[in-house]
Amino acid sequence: MNLPIAIARRVGYALILLLAVLVLNFTLLHLAPGDIAETIVGESGGASKEMLAKIRKDYGLDLPFHEQLLNYLDRVAQGDFGHSLFFDQPVTELIFEKLVPTLLLVISSLFIAIVFGTFLGVFAARRPSGLLSQLITVLALLGYALPVFWTGIMLVILFASLIPIFPTSGMDSGPLGASGVGYIWEVLHHMTLPVVTLSTIYLAFYSRLSRASMMDVLGADYIRTARAKGLSEQIVIFKHALRNAVLPVVTFAGLQFGALFSGAVLVENVFSWPGLGTLAFESILRRDTPTLLGILFFSALVVIIANLLTDLAYRLIDPRIKTGAKA
């Protein structure tokens, strides 16, 4: 019906959320003990009170909170998220370099988890007490209880020395590596272990979710109607049941994008994947607050965009959602 209006509303709402993230960022920075001036001075090896005061004045740190906030928002609006003291580079530049590898990792893991998870769940739903179904229950337990970085470390130990068929570090073979199609292959090769590590947790989760949802749907009246038409079991399952059964999967994919990002931070650090997570870890080691806050902002942005897309996908799958109702 009013899809454009609904989308416009969602986008407007997303902008407000982003503004809120910025305010939170700034407030956290402001509340934390110590300030940029001390950091700068600390870097250059101690200094007098006069120097601290001068730096504070230069950076506008002596202004009242709301004025500092407005200055901050003004800079952000111009795309300036500050300067990374350690990397000596604008934060935005740093983040854009690392954003693509992270998205590659996160999106492929989510894709694999959803596609395979849904299929496993669908087959398991047909035999709720069968072997596959029990396997999913066990996998879901493991997926919940295993620390994701620890699983990754175990894979590194396994593949670094015992079965060295997959690289355990980095995203490519460096300057000596291949180019063109060979490069794509190289990246895929490097991606294997990180993606396996990250997707396994969610694979278990989505197979369990889609199994439950599929079992619900298979008991629905319209499935009986579909069978009464004489449709084959494949069409009943994959046309009539599946589309209804994936709705909760879509909802959760949107809700979990943030958690997936968290998992990616850990997995990137295990496999030295050159993404935002590794950058975040480096900024922790260097106490590089502007960079860390920039990462927080951009990952929130990605999560918001992901939520908009899931919302859109949900509308495409389920015709009942036509108004501006939220997902």
Binding site: L17, A20, V21, L24, L28, L29, L31, A32, P33, L255, G258, A259, F261, S262, G263, V265, L266, A280, I284, R287, T289, L292, L293, I295, L296, S299, A300, V303, I304, N307
Partner: peptide
Amino acid sequence: TEFFQVLPPLLLAMVVVLLFS
């Protein structure tokens, strides 16, 4: 609630822990 769901939990926790040691 939605606002907190948008922030990747681990990243936010990292920021908080880092800032307040």
